[in-house]
Amino acid sequence: MAALGRSLARAAREGAKAAALGLGRRIAHRAAEGRGPVARFSTIPGTKAVPLGSIGPIGPDRLPVYVDWNKFGAVTPVQDQGNCGGCWAFSCTALIEAANFFSTKKLLKLSEQHLIDANDLRNYGCDGGSIGEGLDYVVKNGGQLLEKDYPYVGVQCPAKRITAFGVTIDGYETFQGLNEIALKMLVASGPVAATVGVDESFLDYQYSGVGKVLDGHNYSLEEMRRLENQLSILIIGYGETIFGEKFWLVKSSHGGELMLIARENGKAGGAFGIANHLRVVHKNSANGLVTVKTDKDMGVSPRVQSCVKSHFSQLPFIEFLLSSLVSPHCVQSCVTALHP
């Protein structure tokens, strides 16, 4: 395992931006703790080896040639968010579910509705928000409830003041402006939340392009900050098709199926800027009873959001992904805020 840690650290140094952020040290540390890809080969209770087809053999870059954390058992099924622009809550929740799985060996379905209702001053419910703010909320609240205790309804409602079993996290890390080599190292160690820039081809793919590898513009971090349309996703693996097309395996919250996004296509930041804004979660603390508290309950100051109408408002198939809604006259959206 020490050799794996040294290999990952050496690979991280090959990506200058990753090394600058200490990514190599982080992955080496995860490997030393037994949380790297090789350490997970026999971590599912009742099995003698990694589930078939979930982690490939180690390649020349000292990483698995393919990874599928969905087949491994670390990812809950895709849930369609409907007309609620809460992609930030779905990505945040899926990331915590995976972190909890690797910590406890149990896959629990958590409540997006808990975040949509209670993270109400720093995020905007069904009107868009930030994965980072959602993770901040879970840390401050002391955890996130299960879906069965706080089910999804697809609209923002007054927070339910209930206490029930929930999942905790200890913190998270944000990585900006990475390359796809660094992203591959992160995904080899577990699912990664990402924010991508989207266009009509991306939106159309979620409903009619399943099974194909989707390529797109490599939005820079600055371009993404100016974009009206961004989407929060969870990267749950990578691989290559029988035709030699490299892809990222992506869980979104639309359409009900996993997506394949082009990988290592020579574009800085990757297709749709997939490597530009990433988050991973740390979890070591035990789970237990969690009481739902709102941002206001915890004395959190609000974040300002403006309403901007979109020229896409006449296209019903992408209404959920348009610019921010403050008044009921604005189009519902899934705008993800890019900030620390």
Rank of each mutant, 00 (worst) to 15 (best):
E173I: 08
E173R: 15
E173W: 10
T174F: 10
F175K: 04
F175R: 09
G177A: 01
L178Q: 11
L178G: 01
I181M: 09
I181Q: 13
I181S: 11
L183N: 03
K184M: 08
V187L: 06
A188I: 08
A188Q: 06
A188D: 07
S189R: 05
G190M: 06
G190P: 13
P191A: 02
V192M: 05
V192S: 04
A193Y: 01
A194G: 08
G197D: 09
D199A: 11
F202K: 07
L203V: 14
L203E: 12
Y205M: 09
Q206F: 05
Q206T: 14
S208N: 13
G209H: 11
V210P: 00
V210Y: 10
V210D: 08
G211P: 13
K212F: 10
K212W: 06
K212C: 03
V213K: 12
V213R: 10
V213A: 07
L214K: 10
D215A: 13
D215R: 11
D215T: 12
G216M: 11
N218A: 15
Y219H: 12
S220N: 04
L221P: 02
M224A: 03
R225L: 04
R226F: 05
L227Q: 12
L227I: 09
Q230D: 10
I233S: 04
I235G: 01
I236V: 15
I236A: 01
G237M: 09
Y238D: 07
